[in-house]
Structures are given as structure tokens and as C-alpha cells.
Simulated assay, not measured.
Amino acid sequence: MALLEITVIPLGAGGSGLSAWVAGLERLLDESGLSFRLNDMGTTVEGSADELFAVARKLHEHCFGAGVARVYTVMKIDDRRDKAVSLGDKVASVERARQKPGAGGGQ
């Protein structure tokens, strides 16, 4: 599995708040059947690379379909094939490292 972090910003949609837009995009993610987790700066989605590219396009195009003339989308994909990864694995790994005496990476 791969992970996608995506932020979709409809420009010129009126106002500075985006929570209503994010809620609409989260509904599309619910319909996709993929696992995802909202964070303060975007959303992380888990799936195959093909699934992630397809859902990213769907989220990006959704704003145009809602009448926005410009959409700014930022995405990062981590496609690791040497072992299985899923949502929360990276955070859990960091938390485990924090618990080890002497951990600090460069201290």
C-alpha cells in the first residue's frame, strides 16, 4: 500500500474558510472506500498507487464541477514496496523512537 497526503484548495471560492469544501471532499473519500485520516493541513489516504492517483484526480476535479475556476492541489505520495505500511505507522514509529533512551538523531 501507498500513502497520499493531499490538500485541495479551491481558489476564489469566496471567504477564507474551507471547512465546507473539505467536508465535501471527505464525503467523496468516504464513497471511495479507501482509508483516510484528516489532519490540520490536509488529508492522508491509503491505497494502491493507481487508487491514489484516481482519487486525487476526483478530488481535484470535484471543485471545478462545483463551479470554481481555479484549484490548487498539493500532493505527496509515499509508495513503499519493501514492506506493508498503513495509516499511522510512521507516527507510531516516531513515538517508539521517542521512548528509547538516547534517541534524538544527532544529539
Score class of each variant (00 low, 15 high):
86 S>L: 07
93 S>K: 13
40 D>W: 00
44 T>F: 04
92 A>K: 11
82 D>Q: 08
46 E>F: 02
8 V>H: 00
98 R>C: 06
16 S>V: 11
33 G>H: 08
7 T>G: 10
31 E>F: 03
22 V>A: 02
78 D>P: 01
24 G>T: 04
40 D>Y: 01
89 D>I: 09
82 D>T: 15
73 T>H: 01
42 G>T: 08
66 A>D: 07
4 L>D: 15
89 D>W: 11
74 V>Y: 04
29 L>H: 11
28 L>N: 15
58 K>V: 00
96 R>Y: 13
37 R>M: 14
48 S>W: 02
98 R>W: 10
44 T>W: 02
35 S>A: 15
68 V>T: 06
36 F>P: 12
66 A>I: 00
65 G>Q: 07
2 A>N: 10
30 D>K: 03
83 K>Y: 13
37 R>D: 14
37 R>Q: 15
69 A>T: 12
23 A>Y: 06
14 G>F: 03
16 S>M: 06
83 K>F: 14
72 Y>W: 07
36 F>Y: 15
29 L>F: 10
26 E>S: 10
18 L>I: 03
1 M>L: 13
81 R>K: 13
88 G>F: 12
10 P>H: 02
48 S>Q: 09
63 C>Y: 02
45 V>F: 03
42 G>A: 05
82 D>V: 11
2 A>P: 00
4 L>G: 12
30 D>Y: 05
23 A>K: 06
57 R>T: 05
16 S>N: 11
79 D>M: 04
100 K>W: 08
65 G>H: 07
103 A>L: 06
23 A>D: 15
101 P>N: 01
40 D>H: 04
85 V>M: 14
81 R>A: 09
39 N>I: 00
1 M>D: 15
22 V>D: 11
102 G>L: 11
70 R>V: 07
60 H>A: 06
39 N>P: 00
6 I>S: 04
43 T>V: 12
11 L>Q: 09
5 E>N: 09
82 D>Y: 05
81 R>N: 11
31 E>C: 03
51 E>A: 15
91 V>P: 07
